[in-house]
Amino acid sequence: MEQLNEEIEQIMQTYPGKPEYLIFLLQDIQDKAGYISPESMQLVSEHTGVPLTQAYSVATFYQSFRLEPRGDHDIRVCLGTACHLKGGQRITEELERRLNVQAGETTEDQRFTLSTVNCVGACALAPVVVVDDEYEPHVTAKKLDRKLKILEHEFDENKEGGPDA
């Protein structure tokens, strides 16, 4: 994160301060930071001269722009034809219960983002869940649970409290 502000500042400087560069800037920031924070939106608005409201309007218009931070780990459940037939929907629902979020949302402790996607092209391994670019083949609730536990205990966590309690 400490480099993020720096990098976003530098991204600003690569484009002239004109309205037509709004979308390029938003795309580059999204690539770097995974999402466009309100502060970044403000900076882009100031740099290009586009009123903040209009920058926000453009960012919400295109679905590829995310305005919420993604979790540390990306969990994508494939709902392509083969996976759907093999119970992709049920896997989604179980994950929603397990993580306490709706598909498309990020968990409160910002550890996981759950989303459903179209066919990932690994139909022989259906049902497939992609966790951080790793394809998990023939998933079941139990297998996923094990995987999630490993990720959750990635670092020994303190028991007393804090932002993740």
Partner: peptide, 26 residues
Amino acid sequence: GLSAIATVDRGVHKRVGAPYLKPTDV
């Protein structure tokens, strides 16, 4: 001359609002 509101989202979800759909000082 303020551009305090604009349209947000697209299609059937398109609606009018201030940035982040919250009051601002604009």
